Amino acid sequence: MRVNIQTVINRLISPIAKLEQTVDTLKFGHPDTEVTSIVVAFMPTQSVIEQAIQRGANLIIAHEGPFFSHHDDTVLRKDDPVYEEKRRLLESSGIALFRFHDYLHRYTPDGVMEGLLQKLDWMPYVQKHQPAYSILQIPTATLSQIAEHVKRRLGITFVRSHGDRELSCSTIGLLAGYRGGGQNAIPLFEKEELDLVMYGEGPEWETPEYVRDAVYQGRHKALIVLGHAESEEPGMELLANKLTSMYPEVPIHYVKERPIFNIL
């Protein structure tokens, strides 16, 4: 059964009412093109694009945009050699690129959060889902034990944390992606009576500084910062698995990038 790019897009966005303002658009390619193979990735890096070419894929579905801006603002980069080389590669390859961000975050539960929870094997511990976060009640473990579990399950070598390594934690607020800012995360400590907040990314002068002062005051609080990609890649891997079930006749490949940061 043949399927074109627009058919795939329509199926992905169909669980959500049409968004009037969204970054989820077809950045390259034509919607009527028949899909031969799909690459799913968190970030459409140049390496991911090249791997898609090698695999014979003609559609990339990526969570983030290709040109280093959430709103795809390329005005300031039109003369930048990195931008130009990447743009030329996409155009010359003929690969279509669809960004799937806003709709996925509006799934119930949030599609990115669902992937993260499944990867962490924490789905049974979910107490409730909210649009920006989930609350979990896990078996009591120390901050250090939780960090080791997270690293092992996500296949990462480090997380950043603040708090007593031996602090016993059971009630966790989990926020995927760029939701670790103070406005989102700080109120949860008291509102949800949390021991631990864990998120992908956020301004370092907000939630981390709140936790620093809370710990200094002797309060039972802790923080784990995963990294933006590390918190959202599992959601895209889950999406690739779902697409395989939706379109068994189309080769689907999940491509995971190497971690962007190294510890020196």
Rank of each mutant, 00 (worst) to 15 (best):
Y133C: 05
Y133K: 03
Y133Q: 07
S134K: 01
S134M: 03
S134L: 01
I135C: 02
I135Q: 02
I135A: 00
I135M: 03
Q137H: 07
Q137C: 03
I138F: 03
I138C: 03
I138G: 03
I138V: 10
P139S: 12
P139R: 07
P139A: 06
P139G: 13
T140C: 11
T140E: 15
A141E: 14
A141M: 14
A141K: 12
A141F: 10
T142M: 07
T142P: 08
T142F: 05
L143Y: 06
L143T: 03
L143R: 06
S144P: 09
S144N: 09
Q145H: 12
Q145Y: 11
I146N: 12
I146Q: 15
I146D: 11
I146M: 14
I146W: 15
A147Q: 09
A147K: 08
A147S: 11
E148C: 12
E148N: 14
H149W: 15
V150E: 12
V150T: 09
V150Y: 15
K151W: 09
K151S: 06
K151G: 07
K151P: 05
R152E: 15
R152G: 10
R152W: 13
R153L: 06
L154F: 08
L154R: 01
G155Q: 05
G155F: 06
G155C: 06
I156E: 07
I156Q: 04
I156M: 04
T157L: 14
T157I: 08
F158A: 09
V159H: 08
V159L: 06
V159T: 07
R160M: 09
R160F: 10
R160L: 08
S161A: 13
S161Y: 15
S161W: 13
S161E: 14
S161R: 13
H162M: 15
G163C: 07
G163P: 13
G163I: 09
G163V: 04
D164R: 07
D164E: 09
R165C: 09
R165E: 14
E166S: 09
E166F: 00
E166I: 01
L167D: 00
S168Y: 00
S168H: 05
S168D: 08
C169P: 06
C169T: 04
S170M: 05
S170G: 00
T171E: 06
T171S: 13
T171H: 08
I172K: 03
I172F: 00
I172Y: 02
G173V: 05
G173D: 07
L174Q: 03
L174I: 02
L174P: 03
L174R: 02
